[in-house]
């Protein structure tokens, strides 16, 4: 069976594989000519092509941001001093840019050394940076250790400009999602009011708005320790949460739906059996508005639903229908009646 052999040869041929997978004008031309020269093999080409196309797998890629975040972690994980990486271009102006960048780096370096010396001299307290999101605003913060923090609206994160040698501590008021870069030698702690969340390298969400009665820590991956005053430390695993009730000083350890907890990161408002109080708090922060309830309004039903990139008005339309209330939006105020 000569024919079968031809098919096998084609299937194993690297250029042929390449052509079947990613044809372009050059390879199209090449193989068309080849078939013209070998008309007796056209059938074999057809079958070999079909065989290769039958062996197909899903292509699952990382998005650009994930690629960058991972690279950042790798750079940090490499302990020895890592040379600064400058993106290059094939432009002839390249050398000029390189010279300019070198000059800037030298200045920056000199500046850093100078600052460092100054610090060394009068061992002052750690310098903290603070990021506050207004209502309706979100931000992503990249820390020097490779940790990435997504900060929700109406929230504040305070973090040292440079972490000290044996621990990483940040302060949170409000809600944030943490993807902590692994470093077993330097635990990472989030302090939010009375709650301390301590990890070595994981991802988790902390919701600790001062005006809310509940503080919640929810874990997506890894292991997280949560410490509440005068209580034993809780250890949380993925898809678990700790909910601290401020007025009763009680902690609850519970399963949690991470898709719901993290929806805010992707600009999705996700309610699951939410009462009006919860809906109100979420929408007030999300859109930076105030709710005003007319007297005698009682809303008793729960609401479950998702909203992605929607205006306040369309969200309220959806909710008001199932919770049975009327509303009016007047600038920053939502009147419920």
């Amino acid at each position: 069976m000569n024919k079968e052999k031809h098919v096998d040869q084609l299937i194993e041929h690297p250029q042929f594989q390449q052509w079947v997978k990613n044809p372009d004008s050059q390879s199209d031309k090449y193989w068309e000519e080849w078939m013209g020269d070998n008309p007796e093999r056209v059938e074999a080409v057809d079958l070999a092509k079909k065989v290769l196309l039958s062996i197909s797998f899903k292509e699952e890629n990382m998005v650009e941001r994930e690629v960058d975040v991972l690279w950042n972690k790798i750079k940090v994980g490499v302990q020895e001093p890592y040379p600064v990486h400058v993106k290059t271009s094939s432009n002839p102006l390249w050398w000029k840019y390189a010279a300019a960048i070198t000059a800037i780096l030298v200045c920056a370096f000199a500046y850093l050394v100078f600052i460092q010396n100054e610090k060394e001299e009068n061992k002052t307290a750690v310098v903290y940076l603070e990021k506050t999101n207004q209502l309706g605003q979100k931000a992503t913060i990249f820390l020097g250790d490779g940790t990435v923090i997504k900060l929700n609206s109406g929230s504040t994160l305070k973090y040292p400009k440079v972490f000290n040698n044996d621990e990483r501590v940040v302060y949170l008021e409000g809600e944030a999602f943490f993807e902590v870069a692994k470093n077993p030698k330097k635990p990472f702690t989030v302090i939010s009011g009375k709650i301390r969340t301590k990890v070595l390298g994981t991802s988790f969400n902390v919701r600790a708005y001062p005006e809310d009665n509940k503080v919640q820590v929810a874990v997506l991956s890894g292991k997280v320790g949560v410490k509440v005053p005068s209580k034993e430390s809780l250890v949380l695993l993925p898809n678990e949460s700790a909910i601290y009730n401020k007025s009763e000083s009680e902690v609850k350890h519970a399963k949690v739906d991470m898709e719901k907890e993290l929806a805010w990161k992707d600009n999705i408002i996700y309610f699951k059996n939410a009462d009006f109080e919860e809906i109100r708090n979420v929408l007030e922060r999300w859109y930076g508005v105030n709710f005003l309830l007319k007297k005698d309004v009682k809303i008793e039903y729960d609401f479950t639903g998702k909203f992605e990139n929607r205006s306040l008005e369309s969200v309220l339309e959806g909710i008001s229908f199932s919770l049975d209330f009327q509303f009016e939006i007047d600038k920053d105020t939502v009147v419920i009646f």
Binding site: K58, E59, E60, N61, M62, E66, V67, G77, S221, G222
Partner: peptide, 27 residues
């Protein structure tokens, strides 16, 4: 990076685990 991630995804959907191994590999 994509070749490795793609390969990892064929074994598991646990992205964190895949990325941790990639981090370790490159480090």
């Amino acid at each position: 990076v994509q070749v490795l991630f793609n390969y990892g995804k064929k074994f598991t959907n646990q992205r964190e685990l895949i990325e941790d191994c990639m981090q370790e590999l490159f480090t």
